[in-house]
Design a protein around this nucleic acid. Structure first.
Lengths: 235, 235
DNA sequence: GTCTATAGTGCGATAGAC
DNA sequence: GTCTATCGCACTATAGAC
């Protein structure tokens, strides 16, 4: 587990986007009018990718359906067979991301006994997941404030949930004497870890430009975080 | 210097927004039609604050001039006496932020001799500046990708410049044996410091909700960063 | 200097042919 | 299932009264 790389992660957790799109097609709550599932899935994948790319370049609001029509090579009318409004498109994309995250985390077994390994595994899982879904993570961070109230609550809950995972590991480690963290700095430390993990998908352009890989970043992040939290008795 | 608090910083570097607006009024490159400077400055302050507030809630693109008109209690026609287009408004707001940052950094004397104090001063200066201009920093991060090419380049240059400041301090400290940083991890460490500083203005809602102050955050950030970079010989 | 009224544009969304 | 053509609306921006 310790030596898990991004490639290992992808092999284990890779969920084909097609499968997720198939789920969405069958979901009664959306109004996808296409009956032929293969056609629907194929085009949904195209639409999602195009939406993320256009939105991440100029913002979802600023992306017109005419832009999307051009990029997907589907007419305006055809697009409306896949969603009933631009807002529903946003909704489907958000739910698609949550579905993948849920599935990935469900498959992730919290089987680590050693607290230090638990922290490492949590860091890697979060980094690798955000790498796999980088456009979606970037999108949901950037568009968060424009989203309808229900979506924004989900994002905040997710932010706090992730933080809680780290806070619990830190607390556990502190109790066992493995970590040394001031009592009133527990949440701050968890936030700081989150900030480090988030930087990878928010500033990906910078890291890619320097030729840094996700595995190098994970290694560096783990090393830095351990320097902060491991008790000095480690030597 | 070490014990500088946010209040000290504000007293030393506080630049009245009014003064910056006065600068902007006199700037020939903008087409502000109001001749009475006092009226112009007063309303510009109102317009800037309203724009930042509305944009940070729902995005600049999504904010209509009707929204802005309502919030500022100025009519649509009146607004156009202060800028010639929505894009120019964006331009003026960006330039207003840069002006304040330039002035603040110019006043900041890099008088520290001790390398450890230099790192602390740099961290505090960046945190305090982003606290003073939090809505602007948040705005320019969130709207960066929607901005015209010239503005986006300026933001990227600023990101890399800040990072370079930290990289130089780290390199200097490493040469002197005060810091212990692997050679190939210098830029990663600088990026990590930036990420920690950035989290304060990006997730301000979270920290404020928990009742954490900027001074506590600064203290915690300095402690954490020093744990990562100080060589073990410090004890 | 600020207002109201409106011109002109491009958007999201729909209708109906194929 | 996909297309073209078009409706109605809300936006940015302007004109002209006060």
């Amino acid at each position: 587990m310790t030596a898990m790389t991004y490639d290992d992660f992808k092999k284990t957790f890779m969920l084909s986007v097609e499968d997720i799109c198939r789920d969405i097609c069958r979901d009664q709550q959306y109004s996808i009018k296409i009956k032929n599932e293969d056609v629907a899935v194929k085009n949904l994948v195209i639409i999602f990718n195009a939406t993320l790319e256009l939105s991440n370049r100029k913002g979802f609001q600023a992306m017109s359906l005419r832009d999307l029509s051009e990029k997907t090579e589907l007419s305006l009318g055809a697009l409306y067979a896949y969603f009933s409004s631009k807002e529903e498109l946003l909704d489907i994309i958000m739910s698609q991301g949550w579905r993948i995250i849920d599935k990935a985390l469900t498959r992730q077994i919290a089987g680590e006994k050693d607290i230090r390994e638990m922290l490492r595994a949590a860091i890697k899982t979060h980094l690798y997941l955000s790498e796999m879904l980088q456009p979606w993570f970037f999108f949901s961070f950037m568009e968060a404030k424009n989203l309808p109230g229900e979506q924004i609550k989900k994002i905040i809950r997710s932010e706090l949930f992730t933080e809680k995972i780290f806070a619990d590991i830190l607390q556990d480690g502190a109790n066992k004497g493995v970590f040394s963290i001031r009592k009133n700095e527990l949440m701050l430390t968890a936030s700081l870890i989150k900030a480090i993990l988030q930087d990878w998908y928010l500033k990906r352009w910078k890291y890619v430009r320097r030729g840094e890989t996700i595995d190098e970043y994970a290694r560096f992040a783990i090393g830095s975080i351990e320097k902060m939290v491991l008790s000095d008795a480690r030597y």
